[in-house]
Design a protein around this nucleic acid. Structure first.
Length: 804
RNA sequence: GCCGAAGUGGUGAAACUGGCAGACGCACUGGACUCAAAAUCCAGCGAUGGCAACAUCGUGCGGGUUCGACUCCCGCCUUCGGCACCA
C-alpha cells in the first residue's frame, strides 16, 4: 500500500474543501480552543519531537470535533528573534528572507503530518499586520503608565554589544564566548511587578500541571517580612528587608550593596573612602556572573567610621559594603546575623566579625549557621534577646515585629523576586518600539493611526559596536517629527524582545484578519480562555508569566474578556535523539519527520509518537516502533478483507468494542495517548482472533483510530462508502451496562500468597464470596492445620484469607 | 546549594483510589506457509533452581506503616531539566 499517495490525496482534499476552517460561532455547538505553542521557525526545521506534540494535540482536536465541539486549532510562527538575525548575518541575507524560507519549510513539514489546522488563521509575529497590534498594545502599556524608560543594567559583550539574557550562557557571550559585563543603559521596561500579586493569586483559577504552577510561584518569589529602618550614628538612615525579624538581637553588622546611595552621601564620614571607592568600582566592573558565581567567598569592605544602630536594643554595629547584596532586591541592604544565616556566617568568618547566637533548638547543625528552615517548626527558643528570650521562635517573630512597628521603625513588607520586564533590545530583527524622542516634549508615543512603524529594509543590520540598536544608523528612518509639537525628533531605535509577539498571539488567532482592532471582544469572548495549551518545557515559566501579565493588563483596560488566558497548560516530554541527548544539528542526531513519513507514512509516525511512551516523559527516538505502528495500521486497513454485514456490534466483539471506546475516550481526555493506542491494538487483536469484523464494528474502530491516523481511516471509510461522511460522523460512545460481566476471576490468597484462582459471581455479597473461597479445594488443603482469622475482599480482584 | 521531573525485564513501557507487577509493543527463540526470502500467522519470552508440577527472589538503595507497597512515610544514591547569594 502506498501510504504517501493516500495521505497526499486526503491532505489535498482537506485543503481544497477547507475542512478545518472554523467560524467563531456555530449554532448549537460549544467552542473549544486547543492551542499548541507556535514554533520558532529556525533553520533546522521541525524534528520528530515537534511532531509528538503537534500530532497529540491534533488528536485531541479531532476527537473534540467528532464529539460535537466547534474546535479552534490554529498555527502560526513566532518569527522575530535572534536566531533568524544571526543566520541572516552569516548568510548575508535579510532576516525577512531567512524567515520566509524557514516558514516555508515548516509549513511543508507540518502539512505532511496532516494536522487539522485552520490555516486561514495562520499568523506570523513579524508580519506588519500583526506587529502593528503588538506596537499598539505597547502604546496602551505606555498610556497607562506601565511602560517607562529607565536606567538599568544590561549584559554587555565587548565584541557583540548588548546581549539579551537568553544570549548569556554562564556569564559568557553565546556567540564569541567573551566574558559578559554589566553596563548601565536606558531601557524600556514594562512594570510587570505591579501584577506580581495577581499573577501569583490567580494561579488558583488555572489548571496548569503542578510543576508548571510551582515554577510560576518560584519565579514570582513572594516573601513576606519586615522593612526595618536603621539609624546611622553619623547621620542618616537606611532601610533593610528581613523575613527573620526574630533574629534581630543577633545582628553583628550590616551590609549595603556597593551601589547603595548612602555610600556617596557618607563620603566625608567614611575614613577609608579611597578603599571603599575602589571596591565600588571593582564591583561595577564585575559581571553578574563574577559577583554570584566566582565570588561565594563573600568579598566586602568595612565602612570605617560608620556605625548603624540596632533599633531593637540600641546597639552599635559596623557597616560593610558587600556585593552579595543586590541593589535591585528589597532596599539593597541587609541586617547580618551570622549565627542564623549562612551567607552572613561566611561573610563574618571572612572578615572576622562577632557572632551572637539568639536561637537555641535541639536540631542545631555544627560548622554552619542555624537557619530558619531548621529552627522554624522545631520548637526552638530565643536566647540573648532581652524580654523575648525564652519565647518560641514563632511567637517571638510576631512580638518583636509588633514592638518595632509600635516604635515606628518597622512595617510589614512584601517583596518579590520577579523583576520588571526589560523590554528593549538593541537589535534589528524585532518590533520597533513606537516611541519618538523630542528635545522639547520628551518621549512621545507615536500616533496610533501611524502604526505600524515598520522595520526599514536595509543592507546592514548587525549590532553596533557601541551597543546602540542597528536602527540608529539608519538616519532616514530615525529622523521624524514630534507627534506633539511637530518639530524634528528621533525615533526610538530599540526593538522589542522575542517574547513580545508571543505574549498575545493566542488572541490574534481568534480574529486574525481584523484591521480595526487586535481582535474584537466578540471573537475573544467566543474562544477565551484557551481550553488546552501545550508547549515545551524550556521557556514555559517566562512565556506564561509574560502572556498572563499581558492579558491581565488588557483585561484591566477592558480589551480581554478573561483575567486568566489559559485554563490549562501541559508540557510534552522531549523526544531525544536515539543516543539519548537532545536533537541538534551539530550532533547529527536530528530526525526529519519528512524522512520517516516518506518511508512509513504520516499516520505511522503519528501513531508511533503517541504510543512511544508517557506524553510527559522524555523518550529516545527510535524508528523500530514506526515499523510496528505501520504494521498495526496495515492490519486495520486489511480488515476490509474480512468485513461482513451487521449494523450492531456482534456478540463476540461487543465487550471488546465497549471496552475500547471507554479506554480510548478517557485516555485522550487524560493525555494518555500511549495506552489509548495499546487499547486499539488490543481491539485489533480481538478482531483478528474472531476472524471477521462487521460494519458497525469497523466504523467504530476507524473513528477511534481517526484522531491518530486520520488519512488511512478516512481512506477506508470512503472505500467502503460508510455513512455518513466521516467528517459528519460522531465519536462513538460506550454502554457501561455492556461491560458488566456475570462472573469475574478472583485471585485467592492465604496470608498474601496466591493459592488459587476462581470465578466468582459479580452479584455475590462479601459473605458469600468468603464462603465460596473457603470451599475451594486448594484453599482447603492449604488451610489444613491453620485457623481462619479473617478474609479481606477487594471487589472484582482478590480475596486475602488471613490465617494462623 | 535550592526547586522540579524521573529511576520497573534484553528493550520502549503498563499498573484505576494501597490489591494478581511487566498490559501493549520492539528485539529474540521456536514453529507454520514458501523452492527460498520477505510479508503474514501461531507459540514462548523477569531472574535463579528443577525433567516437571513447583519453589525462592524481583519495581535505584536502606528502613518504616500495612493483612498487603512500583504506589504512602522517613533517610540516602543516581540521571535529566530549571534557578542561582532574593535577605
Amino acid at each position: 500500500m502506498d501510504f504517501r499517495k493516500i495521505e497526499e490525496k486526503w491532505q489535498n482534499v482537506w485543503e481544497k474543501e477547507k475542512r478545518f476552517e472554523v467560524k467563531n460561532l456555530e449554532p448549537n455547538k460549544q467552542n473549544a480552543y486547543i492551542l499548541i505553542e507556535f514554533p520558532y521557525p529556525s533553520g533546522k526545521g521541525l524534528h520528530t519531537g515537534h511532531v509528538r506534540s503537534y500530532s497529540a494535540l491534533d488528536a485531541v482536536a479531532r476527537k473534540k470535533r467528532m464529539q460535537g465541539y466547534n474546535v479552534l486549532f490554529p498555527m502560526g510562527c513566532d518569527a522575530f528573534g535572534l536566531e533568524a538575525e544571526r543566520t541572516a548575518i552569516k548568510e548575508h541575507k535579510l532576516p525577512q528572507e531567512i524567515v520566509a524560507r524557514n516558514i516555508a519549510t515548516f509549513k511543508e513539514q507540518l502539512k505532511m503530518v496532516g494536522l487539522s489546522v485552520d490555516w486561514s488563521r495562520e499568523i506570523s509575529t513579524c508580519d506588519p499586520d500583526y506587529y502593528k497590534w503588538t506596537q499598539w498594545q505597547f502604546l496602551q502599556f505606555y498610556k497607562h503608565g506601565l511602560a517607562e524608560k529607565q536606567e538599568t543594567n544590561v549584559n554587555w559583550c565587548p565584541n557583540c554589544g548588548v546581549l539579551a539574557n537568553e544570549e548569556v550562557e554562564g556569564g559568557y557571550c553565546c556567540q564569541c564566548h567573551s566574558e559578559v559585563q554589566q553596563k548601565t543603559k536606558a531601557q524600556w521596561i514594562l512594570k510587570m511587578t505591579k501584577y506580581a500579586d495577581r499573577l501569583l493569586e490567580d494561579l488558583k483559577d488555572t489548571d496548569y500541571m503542578e510543576h508548571i504552577k510551582t515554577s510560576q510561584i518560584n519565579w514570582i518569589g513572594k516573601s513576606e517580612g519586615e522593612k526595618v529602618t536603621f539609624q546611622i550614628k553619623q547621620g542618616g538612615t537606611f532601610d533593610i528587608f528581613t523575613t527573620c525579624i526574630e533574629t534581630i538581637y543577633g545582628i553583628t553588622f550590616m551590609v549595603l550593596a556597593p551601589e547603595h546611595p548612602l555610600v556617596k552621601k557618607l563620603k566625608d564620614k567614611i575614613e577609608n573612602y579611597a578603599e571603599v571607592e575602589a571596591y565600588v568600582n571593582e564591583a561595577k566592573k564585575k559581571s553578574d556572573f563574577e559577583r554570584s558565581e566566582l565570588n561565594k567567598g563573600k568579598s566586602g569592605v568595612c565602612l570605617k567610621g560608620i556605625t548603624a544602630i540596632n533599633p531593637a536594643n540600641g546597639k552599635e554595629v559596623p557597616v560593610y559594603l558587600g556585593d552579595f547584596v543586590l541593589a535591585s532586591y528589597g532596599s539593597g541592604a541587609v541586617m547580618a546575623v551570622p549565627s542564623h544565616d549562612q551567607r552572613d556566617y561566611e561573610f563574618a568568618k571572612e572578615h572576622g566579625i562577632d557572632f551572637i547566637k539568639v536561637i537555641e533548638g535541639n536540631n542545631e547543625p555544627t560548622g554552619c549557621a542555624y537557619e530558619k528552615q531548621d529552627y522554624l517548626g522545631a520548637n526552638a527558643k530565643l536566647i540573648n534577646s532581652e524580654e523575648f528570650s525564652g519565647l518560641i521562635v514563632e511567637d517571638a517573630k510576631k512580638k518583636i515585629a509588633e514592638k518595632l512597628e509600635k516604635m515606628g521603625v518597622a512595617e510589614k513588607q512584601v517583596n518579590f523576586k520577579m523583576r520588571d520586564w526589560v523590554f528593549s533590545r538593541q537589535r534589528y530583527w524585532g518590533e520597533p518600539i513606537p516611541m519618538v524622542y523630542c528635545e522639547h516634549c520628551g518621549w512621545q508615543p507615536v500616533d496610533e493611526k501611524d502604526l505600524p512603524i515598520t522595520l526599514p529594509q536595509v543592507e546592514s543590520y548587525e549590532p553596533t559596536i557601541d551597543g546602540e540598536s542597528p536602527l540608529s544608523l539608519i538616519t532616514d528612518w530615525v529622523n521624524t517629527t514630534c507627534p506633539k509639537c511637530g518639530k524634528p525628533a528621533k525615533r526610538e531605535t530599540d526593538t522589542m524582545p522575542g517574547w513580545a509577539g508571543s505574549s498575545w498571539y493566542f488572541m490574534r488567532y481568534c480574529d486574525p484578519k481584523n484591521d480595526k482592532e487586535f481582535a474584537s471582544m466578540d471573537a475573544l469572548k467566543s474562544w477565551l480562555p484557551v481550553d488546552l495549551y501545550n508547549g515545551g518545557n524550556e521557556h514555559t515559566t517566562r512565556h506564561l508569566l509574560y502572556a498572563r501579565f499581558w492579558n491581565k493588563f488588557l483585561y484591566d483596560i477592558g480589551l480581554s474578556p478573561v483575567s486568566e488566558p489559559f485554563k490549562s497548560r501541559i508540557s510534552q516530554g522531549l523526544v531525544l535523539g536515539s543516543n539519548g541527548v537532545k536533537m541538534s544539528k551539530s550532533l547529527g542526531n536530528v530526525v526529519d519527520p519528512r524522512e520517516v513519513i516518506k518511508e512509513y507514512g504520516a499516520d505511522s509516525l503519528r501513531v508511533w509518537e503517541a504510543f512511544m511512551g508517557d506524553y510527559f516523559q522524555s523518550v529516545n527516538w527510535s524508528d523500530d516502533g514506526v515499523k510496528a505502528c505501520n504494521k498495526f495500521i496495515t492490519k486495520v486497513y486489511n480488515f476490509q478483507d474480512i468485513l461482513v454485514d451487521g449494523d450492531e456490534y456482534s456478540k463476540e466483539l461487543s465487550v471488546a468494542m465497549h471496552t475500547a471506546i471507554k479506554k480510548v475516550t478517557n485516555d485522550i481526555d487524560n493525555i494518555k495517548f500511549n495506552t489509548a493506542i495499546a487499547a486499539l491494538m488490543i481491539l485489533a487483536n480481538e478482531v483478528q482472533k474472531v476472524g471477521k469484523i462487521n460494519k458497525a464494528e469497523y466504523k467504530t474502530l476507524l473513528l477511534l483510530l481517526n484522531p491518530f491516523a486520520p488519512h488511512i481511516t478516512e481512506e477506508v471509510w470512503t472505500n467502503q462508502n460508510f455513512e455518513p461522511h466521516i467528517k459528519d460522523a460522531t465519536w462513538p460512545v460506550w454502554d457501561e451496562s455492556k461491560l458488566v460481566k456475570d462472573e469475574i476471576e478472583y485471585a485467592i490468597q492465604i496470608n498474601n500468597k496466591i493459592i488459587a484462582r476462581e470465578m466468582f459471581g459479580t452479584k455475590l455479597t462479601n459473605a458469600e464470596i468468603e464462603k465460596q473461597a473457603l470451599e475451594n479445594e486448594k484453599v482447603k488443603n492449604a488451610m489444613a492445620g491453620k485457623t481462619f482469622v479473617k478474609a479481606i475482599i477487594i471487589p472484582n480482584r482478590l480475596i486475602n484469607i488471613i490465617a494462623k
